[in-house]
């Protein structure tokens, strides 16, 4: 019954398909498949106009776009917080929606921008335990899961501290641990580098690279996208306008200008060696 126990004997990797996966050949199934997704807010404002996006298992993709492009709206569809007006979202073969909302929310680990929104329990330990406990994990198994997640982000020794007593960078790492504890299929990061000092920013990058997870990263920090994500997609006015290797997209001056994307002063995306897709 418990969707989490299916992967309990595989610590260290969240990519092993759980028994809830529909077919034995689940390795072929992409982590995320968004097709024809359209959505209008109740006030009539249409945010998405038919978005198609497929993210194969293990790939790291940056979702770029100016403010108001619909990035957050897209992210909130991935775990069924918003219900598509048209089209569908499929996570590792499971369609996001009513009957299996809990499993979808476990599979899609969203790390929100402000860790103070994400970390709502009195201690780090309780916060990391929240997701797995909500899914029915108890006792020693739960403790082990919490420890494992905190260990992966290097915060195990802070388990008993209150989130508001941690530094901002530490809080963001704990926020990542809170979703890792659910052993997600895909990690969705909303502006992961915002408000971080350069050292904390680099530590978070090291952490994301070490996870070996499917990652969708929403960001305005283009060098960060280049460093971490071999592939990028650009969302502008509710449509995906570009999809390709990050270095290529960032070097396309026309595309960048057309969608209000700007590189930091003096930064040349062609001057660095990047991970291959």
């Amino acid at each position: 019954m418990d969707p989490l126990t299916s992967t309990a004997d595989n610590p260290g990797t969240a990519r092993t398909p759980g028994t809830a996966d529909p077919a034995p050949g689940a390795a072929e199934v992409p982590s995320l498949q968004v097709s024809g997704l359209a959505y209008a807010y109740p006030d009539g404002h249409q945010a998405l106009f038919g978005v198609d996006l497929t993210v194969p298992r293990g790939q790291r993709v940056a979702l770029l776009g100016p403010n108001g492009a619909g990035k957050t709206t897209l992210v909130l569809h991935l775990n069924g917080i918003l219900t598509p007006g048209a089209g569908s979202v499929t996570v590792a073969g499971l369609k996001a929606g009513r009957p299996h909302l809990a499993e979808i929310r476990r599979r899609v680990g969203i790390v929100f921008q402000d860790p103070d929104d994400q970390l709502f329990m009195p201690t780090v330990r309780e916060d990391v335990a929240f997701g797995p406990a909500a899914a029915g994990l108890r006792g020693a198994e739960l403790e082990a899961r919490v420890h494992e997640a905190l260990e992966r982000v290097g915060m195990a020794e802070h388990a008993d501290r209150a989130p508001h007593h941690l530094s901002f960078g530490q809080r963001r790492r704990v926020a990542v641990a809170t979703v890792l504890a659910g052993r997600p299929e895909i990690l969705v990061l909303d502006e992961p580098s915002s408000n971080l000092d350069p050292a904390a920013r680099r530590e978070l990058a090291d952490l994301i690279l070490s996870l070996e997870l499917t990652v969708l990263m929403v960001t305005h920090d283009l060098p960060y996208a280049l460093e971490l994500c071999p592939r990028s997609v650009v969302l502008s006015d509710g449509v995906l306008v570009a999809d390709g290797p990050t270095q290529e997209l960032l070097s396309d001056v026309e595309l960048m200008r057309a969608h209000r994307l700007e590189l930091p002063f003096g930064f040349d995306p062609r001057s660095v060696t990047v991970p291959v897709a």
Binding site: I81, R106, V108, F112, D114, Q118, F120, A135, G182
Partner: peptide
């Protein structure tokens, strides 16, 4: 926002 984060974690 906190409620949203809670929903996202089940």
């Amino acid at each position: 926002r906190v409620h949203l984060a809670m929903l996202s974690r089940g």
